Simulated scan of single mutants.
Amino acid sequence: MASHRRSSQSGLTQTVRVTVLSAAVATAAAAMAPPAVARPGDTARDDRSGGTVKSQVDRLYEQAERATEKFNEAGERAGALRRKVAEATDRVARGQERVNHMRTALGMIAAAQYRSGAVDPALQLLLSSDPDGYLERAATLDRVSDRQGEQLKALLGAQRALRQERTEAARMLGELEQTRKAVEHHKREVESKLATARRLLNALPEADRRAYARASRSGGTRTLDHAGGGVLGGLQDLTAASGRGAAAAMAARSAVGSPYAWGANGPGAFDCSGLMQWAYGRAGVGLPRTSQAQRYAGRHVPLSEARPGDLVIYRDDASHVGMYVGNGQVIHAPYPGARVRYDPANMMPISSVTRP
């Protein structure tokens, strides 16, 4: 029976291996592709104005961040599909094993009947020297035939179920391949945006590059003056709303200084949603992978009531996320080239605050 499992798994497993291999080839091809460049008109504007370059780079990073979250979402879906394909492969193997076992049992019954001789029961009764014994044996044979009929029905049902499992497994493999292509598409989009942003930054004077690196996402200062009022003027350096929030905020603080890497969720590098997922994972709480999903991973609270550990979701499309840590500040993974750091919570438009 073990041999049946191995043989039935091999077809689907080989298909999965081919899919994974094709993904590796596509990834290598994407990595070898030449980086995208800005339009000629952009270059002229870049050379004249550092402020224009900064706005362009900010826009490119924002677009890359959106593509990164789509990449994360597609990658998470691909992982779930791989698990489903593996489960379907195992179900197909078990179904094939069951069918083989049932076929073997029915074959044994058929062989036994053949050896006993398929003689007309009426003639056997006439020739029998022990009619009573024959009638008893005939009744047993009828019961065997009834049981065989039930086994045949069960075999047919098992074969139908096996076909359905194979069809579902093949469907999921096709869906996995489409998802893999989506992952590669978003990967190329991110790499293109980041390559253009790097080219623009590298064209700036060194002093301007250092100034950009020091600036927050909004170009503001690294601290927030509570006395200045405004939306965050009433926020205090409060304690966390829960033990898990406090633990997550502590984990986020420990990640300050770690490099940004798109698609990364720790422990050595992070993108924005990856940092949130890792920090709450250290607190024993599972968060979804993307900032869009993290927006709904808890209770929404007013910004004025934000506590350490709360997730601050940015932009209407929820394409960036940071963790509120008190004193009007968040910790977040800003963009490639920058490290995990503190920034003002109002560094960009806030769409919601979520308390996991």
Rank of each mutant, 00 (worst) to 15 (best):
S3F: 08
R6D: 09
S8L: 10
T15F: 12
A23S: 08
A26D: 14
A38E: 14
G41L: 08
D46C: 13
G51P: 10
V53C: 04
S55R: 15
V57D: 03
V57W: 03
E65K: 10
R66E: 07
A67W: 02
F71Q: 10
N72R: 15
R82L: 10
R82W: 10
R91V: 08
Q96H: 13
E97L: 01
A111C: 05
S116W: 02
S116C: 03
G117V: 01
R137G: 10
A138P: 00
L141I: 10
V144N: 03
S145K: 04
Q148M: 12
E150K: 08
L155I: 00
L155V: 01
L156R: 13
A161R: 14
A170V: 03
L176V: 00
E184P: 00
E189H: 05
L194K: 09
A195G: 14
A197Q: 12
R199C: 00
N202M: 05
A207D: 13
D208Y: 05
A213I: 11
A215V: 05
L224Y: 12
L224W: 05
L224H: 11
G229A: 06
G233W: 02
G234M: 03
L238A: 15
A249M: 03
S258G: 06
S258H: 13
N265L: 08
G268Q: 15
C272D: 10
L275E: 04
A279Y: 08
Y280P: 06
P288Q: 12
P302D: 10
R307M: 01
D310R: 02
Y314C: 05
Y314R: 01
D317K: 13
N327Q: 07
H332E: 13
H332P: 07
R339H: 14
Y342N: 00
V353C: 02
R355G: 01
